[in-house]
């Protein structure tokens, strides 16, 4: 693309956006900033769930379409643990562990035997997601399960300029998302296992040739990726709610996040999550019946100009 067209498209994109921002602040500043915060906190949840998805995809080329089911599973487990014990932290740990365990089981018992068969693996995850979703519907039912926030995070946070008050729990999601992102970055960039995972993303065969037990690395990655879905599920059980159908919603969000951000990249997942979260909440606030269209337009534009996603590497 020539320089002119790059400028042209940047302006075509940025000018309407800037006009909207100015109009939004002038029209109703409180609504605008609350929507922004809602978008960022939703992005935080999307990032946590999608980073697990992108991690698994980046290393194993396995499009885990059962990721949404793992999210829902984690949420239900968290809900019941919190109900029994009363500790939110315990619920988070349980959600992570159960989902990680299921993910590990999937990798060890099925995907290990069909390495390199991308499409077949994906179809297996589709089958698994149908079965898992129906088993959960059978055992738990279709009623809405909504978890309450832990005591120290319940209620609103007051005294914020302009928007006056905002839910403490949702506010806490922002730093949580950042902390998890940083931890994930440190894990991938500063530890030995992380180094192996990154090497595996670049070249699986070469990693195996250097004597690394690739199956072990795969299993660990799959467990972490699935665990992040379960962890996100517990968070989502408070922020949203747990009901059959949410699995599809989060799966769609994860897919869009990684397609927009770039597949296999954790930073890309963060960028994609912010774009999706903000676009979705603004869509819902300002044009409720067409909010999906915005998301779709973003997806189409990214695919048109950067088919591998904003931060995706060339194949």
């Amino acid at each position: 693309m020539t320089r002119f067209w790059r400028w042209f498209w940047s302006l075509a994109l940025l000018v309407p956006l800037a006009v909207f921002v100015v109009w939004g602040i002038w029209d109703n500043a409180k609504l605008f900033f609350i929507t922004l915060l809602n978008g960022l906190t939703l992005a935080s949840l999307y990032f946590i769930v999608a980073s697990g998805f992108t991690l698994v995809f980046g290393l194993m080329r396995n499009v885990n379409l059962a990721h949404g089911s793992l999210y829902l599973l984690g949420g239900y487990v968290g809900y019941f643990v919190a109900e029994k014990t009363g500790y939110f932290a315990l619920a988070l740990a349980a959600g992570f562990l159960v989902a990680a365990l299921v993910g590990l089981l999937m990798q060890v018992s099925i995907f290990r035997f069909m390495q390199g068969e991308d499409l077949r693996q994906t179809m297996v995850t589709i089958g698994l997601s149908i079965v898992i979703a129906d088993l959960m519907l059978w055992s738990i039912g279709a009623t809405v399960h909504q978890m309450s926030a832990p005591d120290f995070l319940s209620g609103p946070l007051r005294g914020i300029p302009l928007i006056v008050a905002y839910s403490k729990y949702r506010m806490a999601l922002l730093p949580l998302g950042i902390v998890i992102g940083v931890l994930l970055w440190l894990f991938l960039n500063r530890t030995r296992v992380g180094m192996m995972i990154r090497a595996g993303v670049d070249d699986r065969a070469m990693l195996a040739a250097t004597g690394v037990n690739v199956n072990l690395v795969f299993a660990v990655t799959f467990a972490i990726g699935a665990g992040l879905a379960g962890f996100g599920g517990v968070i989502g059980a408070v922020e949203l709610s747990m009901v059959p159908g949410e699995d599809v919603r989060l799966l769609l969000a994860s897919l869009i996040v990684v397609i927009v951000g770039g597949m296999g990249s954790v930073v890309g997942a963060a960028v994609g999550a912010i774009i999706l979260g903000v676009a979705e909440t603004y869509g819902l606030a300002y044009a409720p019946t067409y909010s999906v269209v915005f998301t779709f337009v973003i997806l189409a534009m990214v695919l048109a100009f950067r088919p591998r996603g904003i931060l995706g590497a060339a194949a």
Partner: peptide, 24 residues
């Protein structure tokens, strides 16, 4: 515009997005 396994992801995304559009 992308190949192989990406197809299934993109078409699924388009399909689910259309579902939500019809619903909303």
């Amino acid at each position: 515009r992308t190949e192989g396994i990406y197809t299934i992801m993109i078409t699924l995304t388009v399909g689910v997005a259309f579902y939500y559009l019809c619903l909303q």
